[in-house]
């Protein structure tokens, strides 16, 4: 057990240093002066340039350069944004929680819709119910997320006027930034109508989380369905049936856990898709997350922000994936056997 954890920790450290190395290389690959891309400061002043070159150790040998960069990253001194002049660490602390929040809601929707539908389709395999669930999931899965987001906006915001168009919460609520997760911030905030703010916030997040969550729900339903069908054909299910157990017992005691186990690593791959979709949907719904931040950075050619944004998002995604992998390794008794399930 310990060995596995250490192995994954090692993997994490190696991957992280590859990413840091890559982000350092990016500063040199992006157009413009590497020093500007690192620090975000544009200046002609020779004194300032010398100071910055010293601070980022840009002219020293590569290993010292890299170590110095790592230590600056650890100290939280990530440079400033070339365009806005904000500290990038503070910017990231603002946008990353917003993206994580959207992803959590979407993942929640995906699990709540995808797993039960997949189970039903798997139990009723090759019947009308199965075919209709399958058809719905393949249609949902084939819809580009930016298109369904637009359709949601046109139908629910403009035609029916049911949901607000953009943002996380109405600007009338003055929520001080504390954790970055707006639902938690509402409960920490003082002097506001918490209930109204909470309802307003829920109202704002329905459409974006549905747009992102439904795609993942469709993918998840397909995975679960296949896995349930495979498990139902196993001999131990026949054994349980021949012992005369009611189907409910068989399903909840034998089928469900065994069929969700192989789905886990494949669902972990879906994390990437989920976050990508969340980043696209953020642009549509003006959600103040990292997708919006990165796209603004690329439109304005803010290379220091791009460098840090790339590092933070990829670190986030990779740590989530490695964690899911580790979790799977720990709960799966047949460890070492990789994904043996298909769609």
């Amino acid at each position: 057990m310990m060995a596995v954890i250490i192995r994954y920790l090692l993997l994490f450290v190696i991957t992280l240093s590859v990413l840091i190395c890559f982000s350092l290389a990016l500063a040199h690959m992006f157009p413009g002066d590497p020093l500007t891309n690192l620090s975000g400061v544009t200046t002609e002043n020779a004194k300032v340039i010398e100071h910055l070159a010293n601070k980022w150790a840009i002219d020293t040998n590569p290993i010292h350069y890299f170590m110095n960069y790592c230590s600056l990253l650890l100290q939280g001194d990530w440079g400033i944004s070339t365009i806005s002049g904000n500290q990038l660490a503070a910017d990231m602390a603002r946008v990353i929680p917003a993206t994580i929040e959207l992803s959590i809601y979407s993942a929640f929707i995906a699990i709540c819709i995808g797993v039960p539908l997949g189970c039903i389709a798997g139990i009723k395999a090759y019947t009308k119910i199965d075919y209709s669930i399958n058809a719905a999931s393949i249609i949902q899965y084939s819809t580009p997320v930016f298109w369904s987001g637009l359709a949601f906006i046109l139908i629910f915001c403009f035609q029916l006027k049911l949901f607000p168009l953009s943002g996380r919460i109405s600007v009338l609520f003055n929520i001080p930034h504390q954790t970055g997760f707006v639902l938690i911030d509402i409960f920490l905030a003082e002097n506001i109508d918490r209930k109204a703010a909470f309802m307003n916030c829920l109202h704002h997040m329905v459409l974006p989380s549905l747009a992102v969550g439904l795609v993942s729900a469709a993918a998840l339903a397909r995975l679960v369905r296949r896995s349930v069908i495979d498990v139902l054909n196993k001999p131990y299910i026949s054994a349980a049936r021949s012992r005369g157990l009611p189907f409910k017992t068989i399903f909840f005691n034998h089928v469900l856990r065994n069929s969700l186990l192989p789905v886990l690593p494949l669902a972990a791959i879906q994390i990437t898709t989920l976050i990508t979709n969340a980043m696209i949907i953020e642009v549509l719904f003006s959600w103040p997350g990292v997708g919006n931040f990165l796209l603004q950075a690329i439109y304005q050619q803010d290379y220091s922000a791009l460098r840090i944004g790339m590092l933070v998002v990829s670190t986030l995604v990779i740590s989530l994936t490695i964690f899911a992998d580790l979790l799977n390794r720990i709960i799966d008794p047949k460890k070492g056997s990789v994904s043996d399930v298909s769609i």
């Binding site: 991957t15 791959i269 990508t276 998002v313 990829s314 990779i318």
Partner: peptide, 9 residues
């Protein structure tokens, strides 16, 4: 690990 980096990024 690299497979996890999103296309958009």
């Amino acid at each position: 690990a690299l497979m996890a980096i999103p296309t958009l990024l």
